[in-house]
């Protein structure tokens, strides 16, 4: 196997909301690249802005403008590569503005284009402000759906959260809780479970993956006493998927699913709604959670925190989750390379 295959192409790290902490954590991560053995990455951002952040926080991080991933690979050891995506108006930390929206979106689009072309190893996204993008006319409920669209028709992305000892997938994501209840369907369960199983095998190196499925209602409905979705939709859908060969456990009561003992019995938990998937992740491992998108032709990870406007510009932001996101993107890239080489 050629040695070059062992080293993925540089990862494209997006700007995120420039009023948030994205630039700061990028600079902080790069500064510790050697000690943390970070894979190569480049920012798609405004070089002047990034240089300003480094200066303001007194972080020694020379910025190098690059014209593409190849140039980034060449300089990553000595400077933080930035592929210019310029802001029309300087951003103010902690003060989100719709003025930044075109650059924020351009950064994501460019990253996806480079990843689809195989020039970037994958996309790592910094957090965006959904409310401010919405006021600028952005119609998607979040990053994940938008990325699915950028990758072309036919893709149904699935969001997974990963921390040190747990992987969870929310069946539904950014919608009201009552709407999440309404959206549960056999088709969605099938697509999501199949996508998880495939990703666990290929991207996470788990053979014969076991997926635990959480119930929607308390005590997983307790035989219909506390809600009927388990009996009428979830249970029958799981039965059919088992018949097709998926190793599924459940539906199990949500509150019993995430204890240390329960976690030994599965490789990922399929949850019915956003908070059911995120509460355990953030309670177990607040600092190192990663959001990874399954079911896309490109690799995409992201720190699982938000824009943190309240601490932006203060220097208090921690890069731990971004670092975990870069590591995970690199792990997945290597596994896919090996699979291709063996293929």
């Amino acid at each position: 196997m050629p040695d070059a295959a062992a080293r993925p192409r540089p990862f494209a790290l997006t700007m995120g909301d420039p009023a948030g902490i994205g630039g700061e954590i990028a600079v902080k991560a790069w500064r510790r690249r050697a000690r943390l053995e970070l894979p190569e990455f480049f920012l798609l951002d405004d070089p002047a802005r990034i240089a300003g952040i480094a200066r303001q926080l007194n972080i020694e991080a020379p910025i190098r403008e690059v014209d593409g991933p190849a140039a980034a690979a060449g300089c990553f050891d000595t400077a933080l590569p930035v592929l210019p995506v310029r802001l029309a108006k300087a951003a103010v930390a902690g003060k989100p503005s719709p003025d930044a929206a075109p650059a924020v979106l351009r950064s994501i689009e460019l990253a996806v284009t480079l990843a689809l072309a195989g020039e970037a190893g994958g996309v790592v996204t910094n957090p965006v402000g959904k409310a401010v993008l919405a006021t600028a006319g952005f119609k998607h409920a979040g990053h994940t759906q938008y990325l699915g669209e950028l990758c072309g028709p036919g893709h149904r992305p699935v969001m997974m959260f990963v921390c040190s000892t747990l992987r969870t997938v929310p069946l539904t994501v950014h919608c009201a809780l009552y709407e999440a209840v309404r959206r549960i369907s056999a088709d969605l369960l099938r697509h999501t479970a199949q996508t998880i199983a495939q990703a666990l095998e290929i991207d996470f190196g788990v053979s014969r993956p076991r997926i635990a499925v959480a119930g929607l209602n308390p005590h997983a409905g307790e035989g219909g006493l506390l809600g009927r979705e388990e009996l009428e939709v979830i249970g029958p859908a799981l039965e059919r998927l088992r018949a097709e060969g998926l190793n599924l456990i459940g539906p199990l009561p949500g509150d019993a699913l995430f204890t240390e003992k329960s976690r030994q019995h599965y490789d990922a938990a399929l949850c019915m709604y956003h908070d059911q998937a995120l509460i355990p992740i953030k309670t177990i491992d607040f600092e190192h959670g990663v959001n990874v998108t399954l079911g896309l032709p490109i690799i995409r990870t992201s720190p699982d925190h938000g824009t943190a406007y309240d601490i932006a510009g203060t220097g208090a932001a921690q890069a731990t989750s971004l670092v975990a996101a870069l590591w995970l993107a690199n792990d997945i890239a290597r596994r896919r390379q090996r699979a291709r080489a063996a293929g």
Binding site: A134, V173, H174, C175, A176, L177, H274
Partner: peptide
């Protein structure tokens, strides 16, 4: 909150 991100200003639920 009840909804994801506390409803994110009404985008994901109004409770």
């Amino acid at each position: 909150g009840l909804n994801p991100h506390c409803g994110e200003g009404g985008l994901f639920g109004r409770e």
